[in-house]
Amino acid sequence: MQVDRIPVLSDNYIFLLHDPTQKIAAVVDPAEAQPVLQRLQEIDVQLVAIFNTHHHSDHVGGNRQLIQRFPDACVYGGAEDKGRIPGQQVFLQEGDRVEFADRIGEVFFVPGHTRAHIAYYFAPATAEETGDLFCGDTLFAGGCGRLFEGSPTQMVSSLSKLRALPDTTCIWCAHEYTLKNLQFALTVDGGNPDLQSRYAEVKAARSRFEATVPSRLGVEKRTNPFLRWDTPTLQSAVNSQDPVQTFARLRGMKDRF
């Protein structure tokens, strides 16, 4: 399974999964259809699946047009999103499996950003490969999604599930927010040498207009404040030793940043 990153809108990423042997493709969170159609034509593959993480328009905006072009493509989304994702045919819950090419994807129910958000984790097919996590707007490189429909308790539970995956996991998050996320992180965890180094690398990459996605989970665990709610430095920064309250206060600070 190969993954193409397609930049769209101002800062979104669409991910096109494809198998050149079977000449098939699946798309994750198609904000727009035309860039996906163009890429499908370039690599000469047929779209067989649409994997949506949640119902927001910048994740499902291309569904209808893609279905028109590929009427046999199956549209997947969370069970709790029923009626909110255009063309949805499969309603997924925690622990369900999806299959594409030679890979099996495990579904995680990760509410917080929305009440119905899910993520797809494709475990490595061989010892030489890494896992791939398509997490929508739940976990970002250096950050996490705003809490539009969920609670801090839900988000900590959701992020805990993702944090437990192997450190080598590729984090395919749906927005290029990394630089600003790390700028905020430095305000609460500025003494973290891993964070300082990462910020310098990301700043240089963005000055060259390079993408910072995918990230790796091990890097996130060392530098992303929203995976470090149980770290004394961050608890001290928000004057709380309670994990959920620490997360909630960090998220509130980021909302105002």
Rank of each mutant, 00 (worst) to 15 (best):
V36C: 12
E32N: 12
E210I: 00
L165P: 08
G77D: 08
F70E: 07
Q68K: 15
T178Q: 13
A211Y: 03
S157P: 02
T168R: 10
Q196Y: 03
Q241S: 13
R198N: 08
E94I: 01
N52P: 05
P111R: 15
S197E: 15
A164I: 12
Y13F: 15
V27K: 05
R216W: 01
H54M: 11
A127Y: 06
L40T: 06
A101C: 10
I104V: 15
Q88S: 07
G77L: 10
H113C: 12
L182F: 12
V3Q: 02
R103Y: 15
Q2S: 14
H59P: 13
A101V: 06
P232I: 09
F226R: 12
Q245C: 11
A123M: 07
E210R: 11
G190D: 08
L147D: 07
N52W: 06
A200E: 13
E106S: 13
R228K: 10
L195N: 07
G112N: 08
R64P: 00
L186S: 01
P35G: 11
I14R: 00
E176G: 11
Q183N: 06
N192T: 04
N192D: 08
L37N: 07
A79P: 05
R249Q: 13
E106Q: 15
E32Y: 14
L139M: 13
P86M: 14
E176C: 12
I24F: 01
G142K: 08
